[in-house]
Design a protein around this nucleic acid. Structure first.
Lengths: 215, 215
DNA sequence: TGGTCAATAACCCGGTCGGGGGATTTCAAG
DNA sequence: CTTGAAATCCCCCGACCGGGTTATTGACCA
């Protein structure tokens, strides 16, 4: 069983080179080359490849949109993105939308073949700098939950008041909910502002929500 | 300037091999080998290496805990984890706690050197299967955020106003920020309340933050 | 026993907000 | 060309908020 590969790239030279490379290497099969992604779904449906090499920069439909559609329609087809420079945002979008790997365009032929094999076997070939970015985002995402959680030394009562403020309740309603006078609520609120270093209900609630003081 | 490398591994053979390899290769420097991580902080403080190779499985203090402490104390030291098989959980923890790369133990010497150089230059060397797992977790984590995201049909201008409301600004200040009159802000706010089904700045901001309408 | 602190409460006052009107301009879609 | 939605501006008014100050109670601690 050989790995069938399609190539989407607006440069004829690239397509021809890949065609020659794949046809000349046992274990690989040429699934066709396309200069744009306008008909990416139809093209892939017809060729039924195992792996798609997709240029991230193409005239017309961008490689990113192509990945999005492709992954939605054919989740089993593995996709490797190719571009000439590390462009953060695009790569992240590609990966999020379903690309499995990422190669620089000047990657030598034998490494391209290796990457194709890797991605076919379930790996995620990518340059170290991309890997780094992904790891760091991943880390910050994972660490996000139990974040800093600064301690503003709010008392229990103050947390109760804060929670009700976030519900949009007025001093009077909070007072009724907690069985205290509205003026007392006023006092608590003033202390809260002092501790959180803010000057309005809105700021207090925004800060409290963003820093997970309340839910 | 050569890259100074420390090795933590309970197998003498591994340490000796790395010592010989590093000493025999220009551009690299041997920072010392340690059979366990009991004194990892002191050891690293003394040796002051650029890169640490850390066995994930060691008697006594585990490589993971070592990474945790090391990264907390010396955030600039790059860490590559080494183990004999892909063990998901441990790798993820290592990465979360601050490891920068991940190698299988049977990795050939020249690739180890390459990985050290990569990690030193800011990359994140790892096996394709790890990369794959990381990418997939990353993808699912990234997709998780834009939850429900109900559509309240807010106009662009209304989003701008909402964003500034969340900063605690008054109508007057919002007006100045957007170069419109405070009365116009008032109008926008009234429409926002209508669309979000709320009746105060606080409620609006709480809802917007909780449903990721704004950041 | 005196001091500190959280919780409660009250008063004042100027400024802001929320809700109700109405009005104009602009621009794109029908 | 008409219709409509968005954005802009204005007025009014009562209610609420924010900031200042002061005071009492009960716990806890030294």
């Amino acid at each position: 069983m050989s790995i069938k590969v399609c190539v989407f790239d607006d440069h004829r030279r690239v397509r021809d080179a890949m065609s020659a490379l794949l046809k000349g290497t046992p274990g690989f099969e040429w699934g066709g080359g396309f200069p744009n992604a306008e008909n990416v779904v139809k093209d892939v449906e017809k060729a039924d490849p195992d792996v798609v090499l997709m240029d991230i920069e193409m005239p017309g439909l961008s490689g990113i949109d192509a990945v999005k559609m492709l992954h939605a329609k054919f989740p089993d087809v593995r996709i490797i993105m190719q571009t000439s420079f590390d462009e953060d945002r695009k790569i992240f979008y590609s990966i999020c939308y379903g690309a499995n790997g990422y190669l620089l365009k000047n990657t030598p032929p034998h490494q391209v073949l290796e990457a194709i094999k890797e991605v076919y076997e379930g790996g995620a070939p990518m340059t170290p700098s991309i890997a780094r970015r992904v790891v760091e985002l991943f880390r910050s995402a994972a660490m996000e939950k139990p974040m800093a959680e600064k301690d503003y030394q709010l008392s229990d009562r103050e947390f109760e008041v804060l929670q009700l403020l976030a519900k949009g309740k007025s001093y009077k309603l909070i007072g009724e909910a907690l069985f205290i006078s509205a003026e007392t609520v006023h006092s608590h609120v003033k202390k809260i502002y002092d501790k959180l270093q803010v000057a309005s209900k809105t700021e207090a609630v925004a800060k409290a929500l963003q820093e997970n003081l309340i839910s």
